[in-house]
Simulated scan of single mutants.
Amino acid sequence: MPKSQVRKKKVYTPPTDVRPAANANSKKPSPVWLPVSAVTLIVLGIGWLVVYYLSEQQYPVEAWRYWNLAVGFGAMVASLAILARWR
């Protein structure tokens, strides 16, 4: 019985108008302040919440009552927004 021919597939090369530019991947690295400020916001947010609970809701600002939770969690969410820009 004769042996069948092996077909070689052509190597796919995308068209030049679709191919990404070589310079598009060379983005600048993030500035040093970006991760530092994100970590600072995380620590401040957690610290705010810990002080709020351990002081039996008298500190950091007693008049804000449960808005102190929004401040603590807001600082942590802001740090996530900053970290989303980190390269």
Rank of each mutant, 00 (worst) to 15 (best):
V51R: 11
A21Y: 09
L44S: 05
L49T: 05
Y53A: 12
I42R: 02
Y53T: 06
K27R: 12
S55Q: 07
I42T: 09
K28G: 02
S30D: 07
N25I: 08
L54D: 13
L41W: 04
V51K: 12
L41C: 06
P20C: 10
I42M: 11
N23F: 13
R19P: 00
N23W: 13
S37E: 02
A38Q: 05
S37D: 04
Y52P: 01
A21I: 04
T16C: 11
Y53V: 06
P29V: 05
S55N: 08
V36L: 12
P20A: 12
R19A: 15
T40Y: 08
Q57C: 02
L34R: 06
S37Y: 08
S37Q: 07
K28Y: 04
V50E: 07
N25Y: 15
L44D: 03
A22G: 05
P29D: 07
A21D: 15
L54W: 10
W33V: 00
P31V: 00
P29T: 05
S30W: 02
K27E: 08
W33K: 01
P29Q: 02
P20N: 10
G45A: 06
Y52M: 03
E56F: 13
T40Q: 01
A21R: 14
L54E: 13
V50G: 08
S55E: 08
N25A: 14
W33Y: 11
L49K: 05
V51Y: 12
K28S: 10
Y53S: 08
S30H: 04
I46F: 12
Y53W: 13
L41P: 00
D17C: 09
S26W: 10
G47C: 04
A22M: 09
L41V: 01
A24P: 00
N25S: 12
P35N: 04
T16R: 15
A38L: 07
A22E: 15
A38V: 04
V43G: 03
A22W: 15
Q57P: 00
S26D: 15
G47H: 03
V39P: 00
D17A: 13
I42Q: 08
G45S: 03
L41K: 01
Y52R: 03
V32M: 12
P31I: 01
S55T: 15
S55Y: 07
